[in-house]
Computed example of a mutant assay.
Amino acid sequence: MHIRTGLLMCLAAGVTVYGAAAGYQVVREIQIGGEGGWDYVLADAATHRLYVSHATKIVVAETETGAIVGEIPDTPGVHGFAIAPELGRGFTSNGRANSSTIVDLKTLSVLGTVPTGANPDSIRYLPDRKEVWTFNHTGGSVTVFDAMSGKVITTIEVGGTLEEAVEDATASRVYVNVEDKGAIAVIDTKTHGVVANWPVAGCEGPTALAFDAAHHLLLTACDGRMVAVDSKSGSVVTSFPIAGGVDGNGFDPATGLAFASSGTGVLTIAHEDAPDRFTVVETVKTQPSGRTMYLDPVTHRVYVPVATTTRPPNGGRAQVTPGTMKVLVVAPG
């Protein structure tokens, strides 16, 4: 942990550390229930739908009412979901099945299944290329397939354990965190080739990744710090403290706020005062286990999945108490 004890105490208490508060608070809880864990969530402001990965299925909820409107079953170890609104299609990353399921967004019916590399984690739809990319966590590769036909176009060998990824369509680049190497890999979306691997100084175990397109900044969530990296050169620009155990982050270009969600039960919010300076303005108490999140740039809401968990007596991964999973909706007051 590269963070002072005093700051950790403030973060855990859910209090403002310094600066002007942004006024975010938990305004709603969307009950998911069921059994098993989760990873990514995705909100679609246009359709008011929330897609929640949950063990072997995607649970679909209505963002305004919290009502469950459907499920996408048979997605073992599902990590994430990507949507192609103009195609009316959605895509899952099934970690235990080494596959991606293609579904109709209106009916949630299955249209097909695509084989991927080992343990697909993050998944992205590239609208400019009509391609879907799965970032295979243990496979160290990226599976690229056509969003309409489902045909695999290529497999990009990156190496390492791959985590979250973002796209800069204007530069024809995709950036992905390589967790075990403390680095960001850069891929050309036209040639499907790896063009750079940037070690991120002071970054241990990068997981979540967000993008400030206006200032060409990659915001990578490390253990205890968020590091801003120049997306053109790979150089570290600045960093700021966050809680440990972060596995989800986001950047809101309209407000200049960066968010990082921690499994310790803290959502850290920082303001981009300048491209080379971020100030933590607020911390919001969520719930232990809330390590991932999704920022909706349209509504400015943050969705944080949580549940009651217990540690086995002999250690190991925390177990989710059945029926307790929910999604916290965090919004400006």
Rank of each mutant, 00 (worst) to 15 (best):
S109K: 12
D39P: 08
P76L: 08
V166G: 01
P312A: 07
E164P: 00
G248P: 08
S109F: 09
T113P: 03
Y294R: 05
H48D: 14
V329H: 09
D146V: 11
T207H: 14
T170I: 08
G290Q: 09
G244W: 07
P127D: 05
D273W: 08
L218G: 04
A201L: 13
G205C: 09
R96T: 12
L217T: 05
V144I: 10
P85Q: 09
H137A: 13
G90W: 08
A260R: 07
I32Y: 00
T101G: 05
V266Q: 11
T191P: 00
G80F: 07
V52G: 06
V17S: 03
A21Y: 00
D188M: 01
F135S: 04
R301A: 12
D296P: 08
A331G: 07
S231N: 12
R124C: 08
T92S: 10
H54V: 09
D74V: 07
T283K: 00
E164D: 14
A118V: 14
I32F: 02
G112Y: 00
Q319Y: 04
H216Y: 02
G66W: 01
A118S: 12
N249I: 05
S262F: 01
G263V: 07
H300P: 06
L162G: 04
S99R: 07
R49M: 06
G248W: 08
A169F: 04
F240M: 01
I269F: 05
E272P: 00
V320H: 06
V330N: 10
E29S: 12
L87Q: 12
K232R: 14
T65M: 04
A13P: 06
P253C: 05
V59M: 11
P206W: 07
K130R: 14
C203D: 00
C203T: 03
H300V: 03
V158E: 01
A171S: 11
P288Y: 06
G245M: 13
K151F: 10
